[in-house]
């Protein structure tokens, strides 16, 4: 499934660019918000108005990123169905699907913020978020119950959990690679005469909190297309298995061979 997801990501490359463009402001503002909080520390409670405005900006960017995710999930679904890069059809997301997905995504985000203190809640919310994007296109009407029903009907919690573990490991690898890429870029540029390497050295260091946060954000951005593609593939494959569509496709393949 992960191999098929990787193939689909390769075919849907232009839509990956759209996804990253939509997700970039959200990740950037998340980093800014986290950075401000870490700056303020225990005094953060005195800066409620300021933090609320930062959170508002982040949440507005969150809505844009969810639209990007939905378009990307649709692109992956079309690639899975047709085997080629879909055209403008990808952008024709039904309004009810978008409304349902924004609702479930905002609910997941709220739940994630509420349970952040537990350190168990966010991974569970990540699983819910993955199932939400995987089943997003199964919603047919604007409803607050349908997204939950479709997630419950998928009954693939074990595989979703496995995907979470796989992507947790992938995150570590991506983080190391991103940090290494930054370091390599810094080393290459430092060879140029006009670049003041001494001045920039503290920035590209793990002692610099902003560098670590930026590397985390970049690692998450790198994994996002694969994560969405894996969940869309999972839901499509589970649906095909339930309806017998996979057997029909297999028989057709055998008949052709």
């Amino acid at each position: 499934m992960l191999d098929e997801a990787a193939d689909a990501v390769r075919v849907a490359l232009p839509w990956t660019a759209l996804l990253l463009a939509a997700a970039l402001p959200w990740r950037f503002l998340q980093i800014v918000f986290a950075d401000r909080l870490l700056d303020l520390g225990s005094d953060a409670s005195r800066y409620g108005t300021y933090l609320r405005s930062a959170a508002l900006m982040a949440m507005l960017a969150f809505l844009v990123s969810r639209w990007g995710r939905l378009v990307y999930a649709r692109a992956i679904r079309l690639v899975h169905a047709n085997g080629k890069n879909p055209g403008r059809e990808t952008l024709r997301v039904p309004p009810s699907v978008l409304a349902d997905y924004v609702f479930i995504a905002t609910f997941t985000e709220l739940l994630s913020s509420m349970t952040a203190i537990t350190f168990v809640g966010p991974p569970l919310c990540t699983m819910l978020s993955g199932s939400a994007i995987g089943t997003a296109e199964l919603n047919t009407t604007a409803s607050i119950s349908e997204p939950f029903r479709n997630i419950a009907r998928a009954k693939e919690s074990k595989i979703v959990f496995s995907l979470l573990l796989v992507f947790a490991c992938a995150f570590v690898v991506a983080f190391i690679n991103v940090a290494a890429a930054f370091a390599l870029g810094y080393w290459l540029v430092s060879g140029m005469g006009w670049f003041d390497a001494q001045r920039w050295a503290p920035f590209f260091s793990f002692n610099n909190r902003r560098f670590v946060l930026a590397a985390i954000g970049c690692a998450l951005l790198t994994l996002e297309p694969f994560w969405i593609a894996a969940h869309v593939m999972l839901v499509r494959k589970a649906g095909a298995a339930q309806s017998g569509e996979d057997l029909r496709a297999w028989f057709e393949e055998l008949r052709r061979a």
Binding site: A55, F103, L110, S113, I117
Partner: peptide, 18 residues
């Protein structure tokens, strides 16, 4: 949910920063 998310994001952030 959007309104609550902003509030809770700040609340949990302040809690974690503290």
């Amino acid at each position: 949910l959007f309104y609550c998310s902003i509030r809770v994001m700040v609340w949990s952030g302040v809690l974690l920063a503290g």
